[in-house]
């Protein structure tokens, strides 16, 4: 199939493995872990790739800048976040090679920060579409996005005090959240 952008000769399309080796080459020790998942669909078993790259927190902004070199402008789907014990993990899900009639690759760049120092570099200046999801991460996980242009509460402003973070799973946070949880089926109202 003729790919429009490729035909223009604008960009060279990399495969998932090539993206991973580019990251390993450019970021060196900054890359902690990588994975390429391939899924097939339909009768024709057409494949698509999903790339997972975990980097150190101090390399996170560099990783996003590097991905923007692969395909620009970057499309951010969302940033997901979860509490994994002593650390908080944020994963930014980007898409590259969109709008080329197929072959889009999902690139998820993840990084962790310790709960004792919950700071994370914001990438809203590089990817303006990230601001909503970064504001959400601040209030749900209690991380501080450093350099976020607009850090107000978003979804919980009318509901919970700013120091309660519903997605945190440690006891200290659960205790704070407990008085807000209503299990209507068990306790009645």
């Amino acid at each position: 199939m003729m790919e429009p952008a490729e035909a223009d000769g604008k960009i060279k399309r990399l495969t998932g493995e090539e993206i991973v080796s580019l990251f390993r080459e450019r970021l060196g020790d900054g890359v902690v872990d990588t994975r390429v998942d391939v899924y097939t669909n339909g009768v024709r078993k057409k494949p698509f790739e999903s790339v997972w790259i975990r980097v150190k927190r101090e390399n996170f902004r560099d990783a996003v800048k590097l991905l923007a070199e692969v395909h620009s402008p970057l499309h951010i789907s969302v940033a997901s976040g979860s509490d994994i014990g002593d650390e908080i993990e944020l994963i930014y899900h980007f898409q590259v090679y969109w709008g080329m009639g197929g072959g889009q690759i999902s690139v998820s760049i993840g990084s962790r920060c310790p709960k004792s120092d919950p700071r994370f570099p914001s990438v809203s200046d590089l990817v303006p579409g990230a601001i909503i999801t970064e504001r959400e991460k601040q209030e749900f996980l209690g991380v501080v996005m450093e350099g976020i242009p607009d850090g107000r509460q978003l979804f919980l402003s009318e509901s919970l005090p700013p120091d309660v973070h519903p997605w945190r799973k440690d006891e200290e946070e659960l205790k704070k959240l407990e008085k807000y949880i209503r299990n209507v089926h068990d306790e009645g109202v």
Binding site: N41, G42, K46, F48, Q95, Y97, G99, G102, Q104
Partner: peptide, 12 residues
């Protein structure tokens, strides 16, 4: 997404 990363029957 149906074009860029076809899933399910869209792949055909």
């Amino acid at each position: 997404v149906r074009v860029d990363q076809p899933y399910g029957g869209y792949a055909d």
